[in-house]
Simulated assay, not measured.
Amino acid sequence: MPYMKNYLLIVTTLGLLSTSTLANVAEHGTLNFVDNNVFIVLSIPMSAFKGVDENKDGKVSIVEFNAHKS
């Protein structure tokens, strides 16, 4: 089973690095293995999201998030 986790880690990392947008903006990330599932968590700076903070308060409200999540 450790072989499978290493394989998934390598495949996921290579996939993310080949996606130029994520590779350029992701500051930190973790992979979480739970049973047979892999979850990825990325820290992305607000500057990666152009025009989301409509009221320019430095925060993204749930209304702003939902309006721009596509």
Results as ranks from 00 to 15, higher is better:
residue 55 N to H: 04
residue 22 L to W: 15
residue 15 G to H: 04
residue 29 G to D: 06
residue 68 H to C: 04
residue 8 L to K: 04
residue 60 V to F: 03
residue 21 T to V: 15
residue 25 V to W: 13
residue 51 G to F: 03
residue 29 G to P: 05
residue 38 V to H: 02
residue 13 T to E: 09
residue 69 K to I: 05
residue 54 E to I: 13
residue 25 V to G: 07
residue 43 S to Y: 13
residue 38 V to C: 11
residue 39 F to W: 13
residue 25 V to H: 14
residue 57 D to Q: 00
residue 68 H to W: 09
residue 57 D to E: 03
residue 9 L to W: 01
residue 67 A to H: 09
residue 57 D to I: 01
residue 56 K to W: 00
residue 40 I to L: 13
residue 46 M to C: 08
residue 66 N to P: 09
residue 8 L to Y: 06
residue 32 N to H: 09
residue 60 V to I: 06
residue 52 V to I: 09
residue 52 V to N: 00
residue 17 L to M: 13
residue 2 P to E: 07
residue 55 N to S: 04
residue 50 K to H: 11
residue 20 S to R: 09
residue 67 A to P: 00
residue 29 G to M: 14
residue 9 L to S: 06
residue 44 I to F: 08
residue 54 E to W: 08
residue 55 N to E: 05
residue 69 K to N: 15
residue 61 S to Y: 00
residue 40 I to E: 10
residue 14 L to Q: 12
residue 55 N to G: 01
residue 44 I to S: 02
residue 7 Y to I: 10
residue 49 F to W: 12
residue 70 S to V: 01
residue 15 G to R: 05
residue 18 S to K: 12
residue 23 A to N: 11
residue 62 I to A: 13
residue 45 P to I: 11
residue 54 E to T: 13
residue 41 V to Q: 13
residue 1 M to R: 06
residue 21 T to R: 14
residue 53 D to Y: 03
residue 21 T to N: 11
residue 19 T to I: 15
residue 44 I to A: 03
residue 42 L to A: 14
residue 33 F to I: 02
residue 49 F to D: 03
residue 30 T to E: 12
residue 7 Y to L: 15
residue 68 H to G: 02
residue 14 L to M: 13
residue 25 V to Y: 14
residue 19 T to F: 14
residue 26 A to W: 12
residue 45 P to M: 11
residue 5 K to A: 03
residue 58 G to K: 01
residue 34 V to D: 04
residue 70 S to Q: 15
residue 70 S to N: 15
residue 2 P to C: 06
residue 17 L to I: 11
residue 4 M to V: 01
residue 26 A to M: 15
residue 52 V to F: 07
residue 30 T to C: 14
residue 1 M to P: 03
residue 48 A to H: 05
residue 1 M to F: 09
residue 13 T to K: 06
residue 53 D to P: 00
residue 44 I to Y: 04
residue 38 V to Q: 08
residue 23 A to D: 00
residue 26 A to E: 10
residue 48 A to R: 05
residue 50 K to A: 10
residue 63 V to H: 05
residue 44 I to V: 07
residue 57 D to A: 00
residue 13 T to H: 05
residue 47 S to Q: 04
residue 6 N to A: 06
residue 2 P to H: 09
residue 42 L to V: 07
residue 40 I to C: 09
residue 17 L to D: 02
residue 9 L to R: 05
residue 20 S to V: 07
residue 63 V to K: 06
residue 68 H to I: 00
residue 56 K to P: 04
residue 70 S to E: 15
residue 64 E to S: 01
residue 65 F to K: 04
residue 28 H to Q: 14
residue 47 S to I: 04
residue 38 V to W: 04
residue 29 G to K: 13
residue 40 I to S: 12
residue 36 N to D: 10
residue 43 S to H: 11
residue 48 A to L: 02
residue 28 H to R: 14
residue 5 K to R: 10
residue 26 A to S: 14
residue 36 N to S: 10
